[in-house]
């Protein structure tokens, strides 16, 4: 058959498609986008307008982070005045009000602090299989949140050693970073 695996997104999309088709048929017969809620029968009106949210976020002051990521490095910023390290990286040091902080490369190994597996995914993540998200503490004293390359959460424990890898996220095809358990 060569059937492709159905994702949560396929399920969400087919439910919404059925729902919209139902409301369209009601609209045709009633002349207004009015329909009874499937469970309660209460009258509802389907919004006839739609917006798509896709934000444009300035990274002008932290673009080095993304350039380095594409070269396989994970960077943080460091304040030369007070030695504070910032991850996620930020241009400004609120502690001593210095600006234009310099860059350091972070260690690649750390210790797992905590984790979860996301089973009910947000719509924009519903095309992925269940993924594990963890927070790992680095020797520099900063924590890094990322996916962990593991399918079974019962195989993980806080305190485990983790190694960071720069990876391509598919199917979107862009560089990000991921934790890999060190066995």
């Amino acid at each position: 058959m060569g059937e492709e695996k159905k994702t949560l997104k396929d399920m969400y999309d087919s439910q919404m498609k059925q729902f919209f088709e139902f409301v369209e048929s009601m609209k045709k017969s009633l002349g207004v986008p009015m329909f009874p809620d499937m469970k309660s029968g209460r009258a509802q009106y389907l919004d006839q307008r739609e917006i798509t949210l896709k934000f444009i976020i300035s990274i002008e002051n932290i673009k080095d982070f993304f350039n380095a990521l594409a070269e396989g490095k994970l960077l943080a910023t460091k304040c030369e005045n007070c030695n504070e390290i910032y991850f996620p990286p930020q241009r400004d040091c609120p502690k001593c009000k210095a600006s234009g902080l310099g860059w350091i490369e972070l260690s690649r190994e750390g210790e797992l602090v905590t984790f979860t597996q996301i089973n009910v995914k947000p719509y924009s993540f519903s095309h992925y299989d269940d993924y594990i998200v963890g927070i790992v503490r680095l020797p520099e004293g900063v924590n890094v949140t990322a996916w962990i390359r593991e399918k079974d959460p019962t195989k993980l424990k806080p305190g485990m050693k983790m190694r960071l890898e720069i990876v391509k996220r598919e199917p979107e095809d862009y560089y990000t970073y991921e934790w890999v358990p060190v066995s």
């Binding site: 976020i57 979860t116 995914k121 990322a146 806080p158 990000t176």
Partner: peptide, 25 residues
Amino acid sequence: FWEFQNFGLTFPGYYALYMTAYMHK
């Protein structure tokens, strides 16, 4: 930007990070 954009955490997910840590400790 730093915790949702790439890693798709959910509200239960954020609290699950606490539950995992509490259970372990």
